[in-house]
Amino acid sequence: MQVLQSPEYVQIELGDRSYPIVIGPDLLDALASRAELPDAASALIVTNTTVQPLYAERVRAALSGKYRSIHIVALPDGEVHKDWQTLNRIYDALLGAGCDRKTVLFALGGGVVGDMTGFAAASYMRGVPFIQLPTTLLAQVDSSVGGKTAINHPLGKNMIGAFYQPHLVVCDLDTLSTLPARELGAGLAEVIKYGPIYDMVFLDWIEQNIDALMSRDPGALAHAVRRSCEIKAEVVGQDERESGLRAILNFGHTFGHAIEAGLGYGQWLHGEAVGCGMVMASHLSMRLGGVDAAFVERLTALIGRAGLPVRAPVLGADRYIELMRVDKKSEGGEIRFVVLEKPGSAVMRGAPDALVREVIAHCCA
């Protein structure tokens, strides 16, 4: 598959808060040339202890001609650290360096870093600009795009946060070369998601190219990232604050978030939980008459080929339901699920507890 020779662009259309997603190889070193970078005296690069030795100094060097002072804060790595205590490290760094309300934050890392940096940017001095520099596949195709920022609470995932858009997203595809295989698979879960909810042609393409994606073929990864971002841009442009259509992007997430919280954050990667959650959501969709057993088997097989779990952990139906009632999509105590009304189209709706228990029992067997 052809390798990108020059960057490609996907635009998020949100009026005066519109911004581009730039996709391509070797983009970090040219950061300072981006016209979208806000002018400021100082910048803070927020990263984690895994990504810091790989890219932090490189980004600092790239930005040195743009900002007079550039600070770095490295957070502990992992979903288990996506909490108030770790968030405060960002505020400590900002306040300790005397950063003002024009200071630009750069989120250099995966989804956890991006979510926390965005939340810090939304709330520090009531809002400072930030840039997303996602270094994982999951962050490039999903979490860095669309302005959802949050931290976790022991009772629920991403329950404390804000909608706050970045000025720019830069997806340097070269960073995927240092991604552990397990993290690559977790990112593929979010790529696969876009097929059954929005684009069956893309699902066909993923099935045909899953081996190339798993082996990190540059052309395949470039297409997967671009098409995923295009779909998310189309959805977010119509429904920024998830009042309707945008909820379909949470396919598999209601079950998945329950798995993450029930096992303890960090036991399964977010993408692993979402992959398994999509299997569970497809079974619920089948019981609600949206798809047939053949489609469920097809989607389950693809998720398995991506190296993702397709059997749910045994938490007990009562515990699953308890955790899912805390989900942000719940209304008046009713759990709301993203289900497939047909292949390529999703809706959000409630489901009888008895049906949900059937799904849990089947998928945990």
Rank of each mutant, 00 (worst) to 15 (best):
R226S: 12
R226N: 06
C229Y: 01
C229T: 10
C229E: 04
K232E: 03
K232I: 04
A233F: 09
A233I: 07
E234I: 00
E234S: 14
E234F: 09
V235H: 01
G237K: 02
Q238F: 00
Q238Y: 00
Q238L: 14
D239E: 04
D239N: 05
R241D: 00
E242F: 03
S243H: 09
G244Y: 00
G244T: 00
L245H: 02
L245W: 09
L245E: 02
R246D: 13
F251D: 01
F251Y: 15
H253A: 05
T254Y: 03
T254Q: 07
F255C: 10
F255E: 11
G256P: 07
G256S: 07
A261V: 14
G264N: 04
G266R: 07
Q267F: 00
W268H: 13
W268N: 00
H270Q: 06
G271H: 02
E272F: 07
E272V: 10
V274D: 01
C276H: 03
C276L: 04
C276K: 02
G277T: 02
M278S: 03
M278D: 04
M280G: 03
A281K: 03
S282V: 12
S282M: 09
L284D: 08
L284E: 00
S285G: 09
R287G: 11
D292M: 09
D292F: 12
E297A: 15
E297R: 14
T300P: 04
L302N: 12
G307K: 02
G307N: 03
L308C: 07
L308R: 06
V310I: 15
V314R: 15
V314G: 00
L315E: 12
G316S: 10
G316M: 03
A317I: 09
R319S: 11
Y320W: 09
I321P: 05
L323Q: 12
M324H: 09
M324T: 10
M324D: 06
V326I: 14
V326Y: 13
D327V: 05
K328E: 11
K328Y: 12
K329D: 05
K329Y: 05
S330P: 02
S330R: 01
G332M: 08
E334Y: 11
E334L: 14
R336T: 04
R336A: 04
R336P: 00
R336S: 13
F337T: 06
V338M: 06
L340I: 13
L340S: 12
E341P: 02
E341T: 14
K342A: 15
P343T: 09
P343K: 08
S345M: 06
M348R: 03
R349A: 13
R349P: 01
R349T: 15
R357L: 11
V359M: 12
I360A: 03
